[in-house]
Nucleic acid binder design. Sequence first.
DNA 1: GCCACTTTGTGCCTGCGTTCACAAATGGCT
DNA 2: AGCCATTTGTGAACGCAGGCACAAAGTGGC
Lengths: 269, 269
Amino acid sequence: MVAQRGRRNGAAAKRTRTPAAPDADNAPTAEMPAVAEAAGADPEARAKSIPEAAVARLAVYLRVLSGMADQGSTTVSSEELSNAAGVNSAKLRKDLSYLGSYGTRGVGYDVAVLIGHIERTLGLTRQHKVAVVGIGNLGHALANYGGFPGRGFPVEALFDIDPDLIGVPVGGLPVSHIEDIPAVCTERQISIGVVATPPTAAQSVCDRLVAGGVQCILNFAPVVLQVPEHVEVRKVDLAVELQILSFHVARRADSEMNGSVTGNGVVVP
Amino acid sequence: MVAQRGRRNGAAAKRTRTPAAPDADNAPTAEMPAVAEAAGADPEARAKSIPEAAVARLAVYLRVLSGMADQGSTTVSSEELSNAAGVNSAKLRKDLSYLGSYGTRGVGYDVAVLIGHIERTLGLTRQHKVAVVGIGNLGHALANYGGFPGRGFPVEALFDIDPDLIGVPVGGLPVSHIEDIPAVCTERQISIGVVATPPTAAQSVCDRLVAGGVQCILNFAPVVLQVPEHVEVRKVDLAVELQILSFHVARRADSEMNGSVTGNGVVVP
DNA sequence: GCCACTTTGTGCCTGCGTTCACAAATGGCT
DNA sequence: AGCCATTTGTGAACGCAGGCACAAAGTGGC
């Protein structure tokens, strides 16, 4: 969705810093014959070759599996799981095969075991401290999310530029000034920065997060952030999402010029 | 990413309703030789063949272009625009070519003209009324977004299940009860529904939106929504985004087992 | 009016991701 | 113990999307 791309920088460009990319474009750019390596037994090395699209789905599988575990299921077949996750069963099996063969033929997958493997692969066994920058409507919502979606992503720092907000606790955590981002992030070992500022401030905030040693950035601001190569950026852009939907509405409306009724926004002939 | 897919339903499944998919999977499934058709002059027909990935980028180009227009630029080259949007210039030209040949060789693109064409293609010339369901932290933020990101997406209905919220104005609009979704959506000609409820409520809310004639759904709840075929779903999932980032952090940490310093969360040897 | 330069538009090639379909493996039943 | 039903894991084919590189087209200078 949250889809994005680009690692290798294009032709000529002054800045070498690279942008964020929507969906695919996975890691195995070079450095090793992905498949051959994946055939090895080392699960760590295997991780490198997992396509990003598959990683995104693994996260979904994980959630579905957690739900199933809560309901007492102990095993699932690829068919069940794929249905619940909304994907093709073959794709699901291939995705799972990236992390090794942890299923039992004729039976299915052990829910608990699978959860464990996915969590390990996604790096969810460690905690990833999160900082939220920009305590506006969205930032507020994020800060209050509490514990943050699921497990392992504690929000441990908040920043804003508004003097009236500095020191005010939001969701139990006091807001610090944007100036202090590098220091605070370094000190608290923040690894993920969430940018929820207005577009104009985003790049400078991003630079400070990078200076603070943050490794990944989740960007809600409608700008393409420029970051050094070792920093990963994911972008969530509401406007883009809406516009994509808009496109589909328009497309549909066009092909139904005959005034047939499929929903609101009908073409009245 | 943020990605979603799936139209054609898998093998055997009780419910025929299909899920949402993360990124690609574009329209030209069959029914016509895409390229040949695109060569035609009809801009409406052309729209069908635009790959979804390109649509997402068009939205980005549009924003960049708007910024340029505000700064007084009248023309841009594909090189400039692609840099600003963080993509390859060839890709940009190809994307733009989906909407026709509106550039001038040797010069570039006329900013205003291009904006116009992209807006038309994305269906931004009509207004798309939006309803937000679930006025919690996130829903609140969305409702207050005011005018909603950019142009053309007025929020015209709010829903929640909490009796204390019903009737209370949020962002200038009173909250209605979830029960009334179908009636209100039909009446106000809502075309886009935003689901910002807890996961458990999401599917039932979704069903009501569909009953209300909503054509597209933007889903923030961590569930795979089941919808009839004519409804388009896009999913924005914070947990998934974070987990993808987590994966990258972990991957990086693994490949730097030597304790080299690239950021926080360093491996202390 | 011609030439050289710039920039678009696109045909072609490459590579990744998705899907199909089947062989291998396992459990249960007789 | 052997057979059948079931389900995984994956080799191979397909198709879309990305990127290169060039021909076409238009501009500005001489």
